[in-house]
Nucleic acid binder design. Sequence first.
DNA 1: AATATAAACTATAACGTGATGGTTGGAGGG
DNA 2: CCCTCCAACCATCACGTTATAGTTTATATT
Lengths: 141, 141
Amino acid sequence: MVGGKIIGNEKLKIGDLAKMTGITKRTIDYYTNLGLLKAERSTSNYRFYTSEAIERIHEIEAMKAQGMCLQDIKKSLDVEHNGNPKEDLQEICLHMQTLQSEVSTLIESMNRQEQSTKETIKNKVLPESVTLIQSLLRLIT
Amino acid sequence: MVGGKIIGNEKLKIGDLAKMTGITKRTIDYYTNLGLLKAERSTSNYRFYTSEAIERIHEIEAMKAQGMCLQDIKKSLDVEHNGNPKEDLQEICLHMQTLQSEVSTLIESMNRQEQSTKETIKNKVLPESVTLIQSLLRLIT
DNA sequence: AATATAAACTATAACGTGATGGTTGGAGGG
DNA sequence: CCCTCCAACCATCACGTTATAGTTTATATT
């Protein structure tokens, strides 16, 4: 044993995780899509979980038993695990990316509109939205 | 009959639409969430479809029978129906709304970060993204 | 050992299902 | 006529299910 973890068997596939936790693959799939579980992806798009996910699942099950919905559990766990800024950072960057593509398609649609239509849209945009976007801009420049 | 449409019975609820088309409520639900079908919402959050949706569903079924997936059907139908700018407008406004909430949560996450982390994020934001957001701002102000 | 092939595993799509909780329209009672 | 109460709807959640298609691995064959 030269620097090897004994337990901590990394690279768990969905089936492994399912057997180790007793919940179905579908549920793990669902949780992963919700962002409740994080997984790396192989080149062939297979999910790889770490042993960390096992405990996470048990936490989820415990909170579910107390009547919480998955969204709330997510928020709760996201806040709880706040000694790890790296994860948050990654998530924010990802968020920023989706937002970028959102904005991109939105601008395209806008440009396809006539001037009068554009005016209508402008009027429908709440001033707070404008402020919000301005704040964002200030944050990233 | 004083200016009333004989057919064209508007304000169809999901059950009505299901009976009229022969597809299940769940499927209509699914299509609506995908954005394949548009529905207004009552104050109590009930969906209201127009008779237009009936034909739309038949179109969808026809394209499905030819092996197309729902995403492609959506794109196809979205492009096809391009004599109706009102629909586009509604969609853009909706887009704008989701974007607004996206930005909102993003700013919140940003503000929870330390200064050093913020810098890291800034550096990860592509300059083109900044330009993009600036363009958006110009469009809506 | 290299290869072909079958068996087991995986991801995603497109709904189905059951539970939960809110909504509405009409029948009956005051 | 107003109020209440119930049955029929509706929305959403949290998975379950089936089908399709790609991947990995174990096994058999050359």
